[in-house]
Amino acid sequence: MLVKTISRTIESESGFLQPTLDVIATLPADDRSKKIPISLVVGFKQEASLNSSSSLSCYYYAIPLMRDRHINLKSGGSNVVGIPLLDTKDDRIRDMARHMATIISERFNRPCYVTWSSLPSEDPSMLVANHLYILKKCLDLLKTELGE
């Protein structure tokens, strides 16, 4: 079993301030080859309603550059490169997906696919306000799951 999928709901300890997140993550089960990508679907939790009305708004892919190739690292420092596979016109959502994919890919040294799923009633300024909170929560989740 090389890969496993987990789905979590992350509440914020401080209760009402930060939104609850729904995360579906497909992770390498044990840490053998670094070629197994992490894929993450993140979105705000939808209040109780039957049919799922969340829609995929951005799909971003990032991959670490091989360090042994002697490239000069002056180019922006981070040795991760990424592209939006499915782009959105809302920069705040793309920034969120890009930032998350880049950080996860760099931190765990693996390719990473990040999907942001937005709700119809979602107001993207919530994204800007909770940008770091969302990143931190997802990273913590991956750290505990991957045990790194």
Binding site: L2, T26, I36, S39, V41, S52, S54, S55, L56, Y59
Partner: peptide, 11 residues
């Protein structure tokens, strides 16, 4: 499954 698309992974 989303309401505008289906994301499928085949690994």
């Amino acid at each position: 499954h989303f309401n505008n698309t289906i994301l499928l992974q085949i690994r």
